[in-house]
Amino acid sequence: MGGRTSGQGKIGFAAVWAIAVGGMVGGGIFSTLGVVISHAGKWAAVSFVIGGLIAYATGHSLAALTVDKDEPGGIYSFLRDTGRKRIARTSAWVLLTGYVLTSAVYAFTFGAYVGNVLGGPAWLPPAMASGAILAMTVLNLRGAGQATGVEIGIVVVKLLILAGLAGLGLSQFEAAKLEISAQPGLLGIVIGAASVFMAYEGFELLAYDYEEMEDRKALMGRIMPWAIGSAALIYVLVALAVPMLTGTKTVIEDGEIALANAGQAALGTPGLIAVTLAAALSTVSAINATLFSSARLAKEVAQDGDLPDRFAASNSQGAPSAAVLLIAVPALVLAVIGGLSGLVSAASLVFLTVFGVLNLLAWREGVGKRWITLPGALGSFAALGVLALDLAGLV
C-alpha cells in the first residue's frame, strides 16, 4: 500500500504496481478463501471476478478524479474540494474505520499463520498478532516509511509462492472437487464477492503517492488495470487450485490457515514454510503500509479541523504519532478479540460503501468513462445491500 521513504527519486511503473498489488494481496487471500467458498461454493472464483470488476471500476474512477485534480488525495479530499464538507468528514471517519479493520485482519492472519507453523499454546497466535502491530507501530513512530525496493521484493516473493501453489493445485484439477454439500445459487456468488471485498482494498492509497510518480498523469491513468488485474488473476487461480490440494470442505474448516495446509499437502514441510513466509511478509508489509498512509490521512483531516488537533501533531521523528496510535490501538484490540469472518465482513462493508461513493462522485463530476463509473457505483451499492442483508440474516 501507499507511502514511500522520503529522499528517494520518483517512483516508476514497477514500484507503483508493487505498492498497489502489495496492498491488495496484503493478507486477504491468505485468510478469506474459506469465507468466500463457504458462501459461493464451486463458484468462488466467479465471486473474485465480480469483486475484481467492481474494484476495476473504482480504480478507474479514482484515477480519473486524481488526474482531473492533478494533486494527491482520495475520497476525503475529493469530497471536500467539491464543497461536500459534511460528507467528506463522514467519509474520513468511515475510511479510517476500514483501515483499523483491515489492519486487524492482517494482524490476525499473521498470528494465525506464524502460530500454526510454530505450534504451541492457544495464546500464541493472538500474541503474535499483537507483536506484529506493535512492531509496525514502533517503526512508524520512528518516522520510517515504505521503501519501494523492499516492497517490490516482497510482492515478487509472495506472488511467486502463490503462483507455485496455484500451479501445483491446477495440475490436479477436477471440477468435482469444488463442490460443497449445500451448493449455493447466484445470490451466494454475490454474497461471496461482497463478503471478501476487502481483499481488493489497497489500490486506493496510490492516490496519496500521486505526486511521487514518474509522469504521474499517464502512470495513474494506466496502472489500475494492471494492478487490479494482477490481484484478481492470482485470487481466481488460488480459489480454483487450493481445493484440489486439500478438498473444499477442508478449506472451509481450516479457515485462516487454509493456504498453509494446502502448501503442506503439496510439498510437505517446505510447502508449509513457504506459504507461511509469504503470508507473514504480506501481512507485516500491509500493516506497515496501512499505518503509514492512514495516519497521514488522519493528520490531513485533523489539519482541516475534522479531527481533534492532537492528531495533526508530529513527534520529533516527523511521524504523526497520535494518528498512528489512532489506527494501531483499536486494530490491536480487534486482532486479539475479533473473529476473522466478522472482521472481514465489516471491512468489506466499509470499503463497498466508500468505493460506491467514489464511483458515484466520478460519475457526478463527469470524469472518467461513465459506462464504467456508473456500473461501478451500482455494483458497489448492490453488493453492499446484499452483504448487509446477509449479515442481518434476511437472505
Rank of each mutant, 00 (worst) to 15 (best):
L165S: 01
Y208D: 11
T290Y: 01
V386R: 06
T97I: 03
D70I: 06
S38Y: 05
G153D: 12
W17L: 12
D254H: 08
I87D: 11
G271P: 13
I161V: 14
G342M: 02
A193C: 09
I29N: 13
S47P: 11
P330L: 05
E179M: 10
V367K: 02
E174R: 07
D306W: 13
G268M: 03
G120Y: 04
R142S: 14
G385T: 12
L360D: 03
S285R: 00
A147E: 08
L62D: 07
I287P: 00
V46P: 03
G268I: 15
M224A: 15
V114W: 13
F78V: 10
G185Y: 09
I252V: 12
P184W: 00
I11K: 11
A319S: 13
P320V: 13
L160R: 00
D215T: 04
M224P: 12
K42R: 15
R296I: 07
A278Y: 03
L159Q: 15
A279D: 01
F381R: 14
A312F: 06
T246K: 15
A362F: 04
M136L: 10
R296A: 04
V357S: 09
L160W: 03
S181Q: 01
P243N: 07
R86Y: 11
T97A: 15
S341L: 06
K369W: 07
L219C: 09
V16H: 00
A63E: 14
G366R: 00
A194V: 05
L326E: 06
S6F: 05
K217N: 13
A88W: 14
I75M: 13
F351W: 03
I11Y: 07
I223M: 06
L340W: 10
V100H: 02
T248W: 05
L374A: 13
I228N: 14
A193S: 07
W17T: 01
V238S: 08
M128E: 04
Y76M: 01
K69H: 07
S31A: 14
I154M: 10
I152N: 02
G153I: 06
G356K: 05
S285L: 00
G305A: 04
A122N: 10
L384D: 15
L95G: 12
A322R: 08
G385N: 15
A175I: 03
N116C: 10
L101R: 01
A286W: 06
I327G: 02
G385A: 15
Y200L: 14
R89Y: 05
G26R: 14
L178H: 05
L134M: 14
L361I: 00
I161F: 02
Q146P: 00
V105S: 04
L352I: 11
A18I: 01
H60F: 14
G153S: 11
L62F: 10
R216F: 12
M213Q: 11
I234Y: 02
V367D: 02
F355I: 07
L62T: 15
L352M: 02
T276E: 03
S77V: 07
L307I: 10
T290W: 00
G7H: 12
L178Q: 05
R370L: 04
W17P: 00
A218P: 06
A265N: 09
W226H: 14
V242M: 04
A112F: 07
Q146F: 02
L307N: 09
G342H: 11
G385E: 09
N315P: 09
L186E: 01
A241Q: 14
K299Q: 14
G338Y: 06
L168I: 11
A279F: 11
I273D: 09
A104E: 01
W93A: 13
A166M: 08
Y106L: 06
K85T: 15
L349I: 10
G188S: 09
